[in-house]
């Protein structure tokens, strides 16, 4: 039963996210300043940029883990003041609790919400099935490959029926083949459970394969924006790829 409610929970549509004049930093060091960005409800927005440009910092701020030093972040109609199960964060690696099995990791958001054991177990099993890991339910993270761990993480993030999923280079540590499989899986899973996705990557092909829109981030905020004409399809568009590479290249030179 709960799988139904969980699924409808996400089907209600994604959460719009906004940054207005946002500055971010840690330890007195400003990473990004004057950032304006609007993420439309239900879209996949890819944030690209050189390392150190503040992609991950922005994602942490959107998740509510890092307060802004200036400006305003809003999720839906409400300002972001802290973490919320509405905005799930998927980390690059090793974010699964190693003392919990895959199944119990996926159960976690439901357990936090107080869903009774039997229901949350069924829902978690369903989610593991959707990411192709029905057989790995009883295994611990250390017994899973990097790709499998990321699939469990995806299932865990989505099991809580978040309205926005923030993904911080989630496939960055995987080999090319696994990575392509994961991208397809992500799009597949999102079709059944739509949510707003903010996806950070520095891989141009990944950005174009997943994004409805790609923005390039620099120290002064968004420096370029590309709308993908045939989003969420494996269509290759060399001209678009060149345009994004140029935008990233300009960013890279500026950063140096």
């Amino acid at each position: 039963m709960i799988t139904e409610t969980v699924a409808t929970g996400t089907r209600e549509g994604g959460l719009g996210l906004r940054a207005d004049g946002v500055a971010l930093g840690h330890g007195g060091r400003t990473v990004v300043a004057g950032l304006d960005l609007a993420v439309r409800a239900g879209e996949i927005l890819v944030i690209a940029g050189p390392s150190g440009c503040g992609k991950s910092t922005l994602l942490r701020a959107l998740a509510g883990l890092l307060p802004v030093t200036a400006g305003r972040l809003t999720a839906g109609d409400a300002p972001v003041t802290g973490p919320s199960p509405d905005r799930a964060l998927v980390f690059q690696d090793d974010a699964l609790l190693p003392w919990r099995t895959a199944l119990r990791n996926v159960e976690l958001p439901l357990a936090i919400r107080g869903v009774p054991r039997r229901e949350r177990r069924a829902a978690a099993r369903d989610w593991l099935g959707r990411v192709g890991l029905a057989d790995a339910a009883g295994r611990y993270p250390r017994e899973l490959s990097g790709g499998m761990r990321q699939r469990v993480q995806l299932a865990r993030a989505l099991a809580g029926a978040p309205r926005a999923v923030l993904m911080d280079e989630p496939f960055g540590a995987l080999d090319a083949q696994t990575r392509a499989g994961m991208q397809a899986l992500l799009l597949d899973v999102l079709r059944a459970a739509p949510a707003t996705v903010v996806f950070v990557t520095h891989d141009v092909d990944e950005a174009l394969a997943l994004g409805d829109r790609v923005v390039v981030l620099g120290a002064a905020g968004v420096t370029a924006q590309i709308t993908v004409p045939h989003p969420r399809t494996p269509v290759r568009d060399p001209a678009l790829r060149d345009a994004l590479l140029r935008a990233l290249g300009a960013q890279e030179r500026e950063a140096v």
Binding site: S84, P85, R87, A88, A95, L108, I112, R113
Partner: peptide, 22 residues
């Protein structure tokens, strides 16, 4: 590692959950 606590907090966990669960 801070990432475990971050993960639990972004899944909706509060202080008590972080303490007992992480």
């Amino acid at each position: 590692p801070g990432v475990w606590e971050d993960a639990v907090r972004t899944l909706g966990g509060g202080r008590w959950r972080v303490l007992t669960g992480v």
